[in-house]
């Protein structure tokens, strides 16, 4: 049970690390369809965080 919670915690923390590392995405290139990296990268991470959070939620919900 403990290891499940630890994995869930890591899954939840990943999007926090990604978004707090502002200098890693505060740039124009690579563009996607003319949209600067800053704008599309953060949007893509919305979908990725939903997936990570969902796995975390499933792990947290399981009875040990």
């Amino acid at each position: 049970m403990k290891s499940k919670d630890a994995v869930a915690a890591v899954l939840i923390i990943i999007p926090f690390i990604v978004y707090f590392a502002i200098p890693t995405y505060n740039m124009v290139n690579p563009m996607w369809g003319g949209v600067p990296f800053f704008w599309w990268y953060q949007t893509v991470w919305l979908a990725l965080s939903a997936v990570l959070f969902f796995f975390a939620a499933v792990l947290m919900g399981r009875k040990s």
């Binding site: 704008w39 953060q42 949007t43 919305l46 979908a47 965080s49 939903a50 959070f53 969902f54 975390a56 939620a57 499933v58 947290m60 919900g61």
Partner: peptide, 17 residues
């Protein structure tokens, strides 16, 4: 509640657009 909440960032894609 936990599972439906976890999926809500998908909703945010519309907000970003």
């Amino acid at each position: 509640v936990r599972k439906s909440t976890a999926l809500l960032p998908f909703y945010g894609v519309g907000l970003a657009l």
